[in-house]
């Protein structure tokens, strides 16, 4: 299990580095896919099987494909971005991100209180358990999420529609 975790962590890190470093947005999207799939396997390791499947379907299936669609739609006819950002902007970004990481790791330095991980819920992430949690205990956020998705759908349609001037007369 630790070996599998190490391999997955390596894959996730390589994917993240690929997103950061590649010149071509298509390669970035594919690296992102690598990262998402590694995370999906980790969810399964963490007894969240259903979330692993949803991760594959939503992130790998929908989001990365959407990214690739847009890259293909607009990629061909754009001028290259030219030379990179000024050096000090880049250095400031690296320093800020490193400081942020240090702060996060500092927060993680304390040991976690003893959890129930050793006990482990028998069917932690099964569809049944998660469905009960979602539809019984957390029904209001669930319904709000549906409204959010509806709003997003309407917004996407409105934004992506080509603007037509109303006929004036």
């Amino acid at each position: 299990m630790p070996l599998l975790f190490a391999a997955l962590a390596l894959i996730a890190l390589v994917g993240a580095a690929g997103v950061l470093l590649s010149r071509n947005p298509v390669y970035s999207a594919l690296s992102l896919l690598l990262n998402f799939v590694a995370f999906a396997v980790m969810y399964v390791m963490l007894s969240a099987q259903f979330l692993g499947v949803v991760q594959i379907i939503v992130y790998a299936g929908a989001i990365v494909v959407l990214f690739l669609f847009v890259v293909m739609l607009i990629g061909g006819n754009l001028p290259a971005l030219g030379r990179g950002r000024r050096a000090y902007v880049r250095a400031a970004g690296v320093i800020l991100a490193a400081l942020f990481l240090l702060a996060l790791l500092f927060g993680l330095a304390r040991p976690l209180p003893n959890g129930l991980a050793a006990v482990g819920a028998p069917d932690g992430g099964s569809v049944q358990a998660l469905g009960l949690a979602l539809y019984v205990d957390h029904i209001v956020p669930f319904e709000l999420a549906s409204i959010l998705l509806l709003t997003a759908m309407l917004g996407g349609i409105v934004l992506a529609r080509r603007y037509q001037a109303p006929p004036k007369d």
Partner: peptide
């Protein structure tokens, strides 16, 4: 969520 054996974390992930 796995550490504490509590499903609320997974519901958060859904949202």
């Amino acid at each position: 969520a796995n550490q504490w054996g509590n499903l609320s974390g997974q519901v958060f992930v859904f949202i």
